[in-house]
Measured scan of single mutants.
Amino acid sequence: NITNLCPFDEVFNATRFASVYAWNRKRISNCVADYSVLYNFAPFFAFKCYGVSPTKLNDLCFTNVYADSFVIRGNEVSQIAPGQTGNIADYNYKLPDDFTGCVIAWNSNKLDSKVGGNYNYLYRLFRKSNLKPFERDISTEIYQAGNKPCNGVAGFNCYFPLRSYGFRPTYGVGHQPYRVVVLSFELLHAPATVCGPKKST
């Protein structure tokens, strides 16, 4: 009989979020998941679920829940969905086509923008091939755009693969920082350890 609540607040209220190319993952297990707390949290810009209804989450049990978190621009949030393409979905964070879970995003301009620009948040701009679902690539190898080998030196046709967002408070909404948490639900042939409040007695 599990009684402790799942530590969703640790994920959602973290002081610093990860850059999207180096997205953070927390495994959540052996706890009671009260999703209504999240669902009623006012400032969400997006709360979209795939393969599961957000209002039914509290009735369900899962083997594991993974909480992935990172920061992207407002106009990139739409790429955090199954079957998407674009710089983020291709080179930074890719969801599987059969994704079961929820994508939760909110504007973090007050936290993550600075006058003069916040350059701490990076994304991958160049990559030889697209990421596989949930693949994480933190390499900083110089990207070779031409035929000539770069030998690890940036220059003509040789690019550092990461780019900084440089968030400023005055940017338009599409270019403002958004914090994103992706909850993915794993249902294995194993005992369920993460259940909603109704199922955990």
Results as ranks from 00 to 15, higher is better:
N1E: 10
T3E: 09
C6I: 02
D9A: 14
V11K: 02
F12C: 04
N13W: 00
N13L: 04
A14C: 05
T15K: 11
F17M: 06
A18M: 06
Y21W: 08
A22M: 10
W23R: 00
R25P: 02
N30K: 06
V32R: 10
D34K: 04
Y35T: 08
Y35F: 15
S36F: 04
N40I: 04
A42K: 11
A42N: 07
P43T: 06
F44D: 13
F44Y: 10
A46C: 10
K48L: 04
Y50G: 01
V52R: 01
S53K: 12
S53W: 05
S53D: 15
P54F: 15
P54E: 12
T55G: 14
T55A: 14
T55Q: 14
K56V: 08
L57Y: 04
L57C: 03
N64V: 10
V65Q: 02
D68R: 01
D68C: 02
I72E: 02
I72W: 00
R73C: 07
R73V: 03
N75R: 09
E76K: 01
E76D: 09
V77Y: 02
S78D: 14
S78H: 10
Q79W: 00
A81R: 06
G83W: 03
T85R: 14
G86P: 02
G86M: 03
N87P: 15
N87E: 11
A89L: 02
A89T: 06
A89H: 03
D90C: 05
Y91K: 06
N92P: 03
L95M: 07
L95Y: 00
D98K: 10
F99I: 01
T100F: 12
W106K: 02
S108T: 08
S108G: 05
N109S: 11
N109K: 09
N109F: 06
K110P: 08
K110T: 11
L111K: 11
D112V: 00
D112M: 00
G116V: 08
G116W: 07
N118Q: 11
Y119L: 11
N120H: 10
N120E: 14
Y121G: 03
Y121A: 07
L122P: 01
Y123A: 10
Y123S: 13
R124D: 05
R127W: 02
N130R: 14
L131N: 03
L131R: 01
P133I: 02
E135H: 07
R136E: 04
R136P: 02
R136D: 04
D137K: 01
I138F: 07
I142L: 14
I142S: 08
Y143D: 12
Q144Y: 05
A145E: 13
K148A: 12
C150L: 05
N151R: 12
N151W: 09
G152N: 13
V153K: 15
C158K: 06
F160S: 15
P161E: 04
Y165G: 04
Y165E: 05
R168F: 10
R168M: 11
P169I: 01
P169W: 03
T170H: 14
T170A: 12
Y171K: 12
V173N: 11
V173K: 14
V173D: 14
V173L: 14
G174Q: 13
Y178F: 13
R179V: 04
V180L: 03
F185R: 00
F185N: 02
E186T: 09
E186G: 10
L188M: 13
A192I: 10
V194G: 12
V194R: 10
S200Q: 13
S200I: 11
T201L: 13
